Simulated scan of single mutants.
Amino acid sequence: MTKQKIVFFDIDGTLLDHEKQIPDSTRQAIKHLQENGVITAIATGRAPFMFEEIRKELNINTFVSFNGQYVVHDNNVVFKNPLSAEALVLLEEKATAAGHPMAFFSSESMASNRDGDPFIKTSFNDLKMNPPLFDMSFHNNNEIYQALLFCEANDEAEYLKLKSDFEYIRWHQYSTDVIPAGGSKALGIKQLLDSLKIDVRHTYAFGDALNDIQMLSFVNYGIAMGNALDETKNAARFITKHVDQDGIYHGLQEVGLLTGV
């Protein structure tokens, strides 16, 4: 095991403020880490193609995507864990019968099984992204690493009764992530650490949402943003300032990674 340090950053509400912009202080802090040999990585529920510009802007080439199901280091895939195709068929059948649309994500693109759905439009609009294209057969012809089920929270219980091939992580009023059972950002991070032979004692992570809880509990220095959910803050070792108040910069100072800055 090496003593190499690595820091994982969630995207929405962490790297990106509520205007979906990267604060200048965050850019400067990440550049400082890189200049000092610290590996900077992204850990997100998003698909790789959904944050390519962020990676370019921050010069980050290591990431855990799809909530841990697709992991890349220096542009090389080190771990992938797609959804069960058979179980996905059953889930889609149940969702269709209930009137709930779905979207499906490969490592390179996405598609939905309903065109013009208001839940899909609202969810992606809040991400400030274009909704997926309509393609009924996309998920039958591609390896799928994550799906989105568009329903409200009180409808989600019906899906929890299905065979436990999947886990559901709500990220929006109208949408929940569908990932393989046992999958999480923490699992993806562990796979990366094993590949790079990095001791977990030298790991740091920033997050704010439900899908960050296991990650913040797993790394040695879990840091919740000031705007994080209470459940996420409870899982963290430290709580930094709000994303709109230079939260990443102050959090890195708190754990001693920005000494002298």
Rank of each mutant, 00 (worst) to 15 (best):
D117A: 05
D117Q: 06
P118Q: 03
P118N: 02
F119R: 15
F119G: 03
F119Y: 13
F119A: 13
I120F: 05
K121F: 03
T122A: 15
T122V: 06
S123G: 00
S123F: 10
S123W: 06
S123N: 10
S123T: 15
F124W: 11
F124H: 10
F124T: 06
N125P: 00
N125E: 13
D126E: 12
D126V: 00
L127V: 02
K128W: 04
K128S: 09
M129S: 04
M129K: 14
N130P: 07
P131E: 07
P131C: 02
P131R: 02
P131L: 04
P131Y: 08
P132R: 04
P132K: 11
L133M: 05
F134R: 05
F134K: 08
D135R: 06
D135C: 01
M136G: 00
S137L: 14
S137R: 15
F138W: 05
F138P: 03
F138M: 04
F138Y: 13
H139L: 07
H139C: 04
H139R: 13
H139D: 01
H139T: 05
N140P: 00
N141S: 11
N142Q: 10
N142L: 08
E143H: 01
E143D: 12
E143Y: 00
I144W: 01
Y145K: 06
Q146F: 00
Q146R: 12
Q146T: 08
A147I: 06
A147S: 15
A147C: 15
L148G: 13
L148F: 15
L148C: 10
L149M: 00
L149Y: 06
L149K: 07
F150T: 09
F150N: 09
F150K: 06
C151D: 10
C151L: 13
C151I: 03
C151M: 13
A153Q: 11
N154Y: 14
N154L: 08
N154F: 13
E156I: 07
E156F: 03
E156Q: 09
E158W: 06
E158K: 14
E158Q: 14
Y159Q: 09
L160S: 12
L160G: 05
L160Y: 13
L160T: 12
K161W: 01
K161E: 03
L162T: 11
L162N: 11
K163Q: 14
K163E: 15
F166L: 07
F166M: 02
F166P: 03
E167I: 11
E167K: 09
E167S: 15
E167W: 08
E167H: 14
Y168M: 14
I169P: 07
I169Q: 09
I169V: 15
I169F: 12
W171P: 08
W171S: 10
W171N: 13
W171A: 05
H172S: 07
H172G: 02
Q173D: 09
Q173A: 08
Y174R: 12
S175K: 04
S175G: 15
T176R: 11
T176I: 14
D177S: 10
D177P: 08
V178Q: 00
I179N: 10
P180T: 06
A181M: 06
G183H: 07
S184T: 02
S184P: 02
K185F: 03
A186L: 01
A186D: 04
A186E: 00
L187H: 10
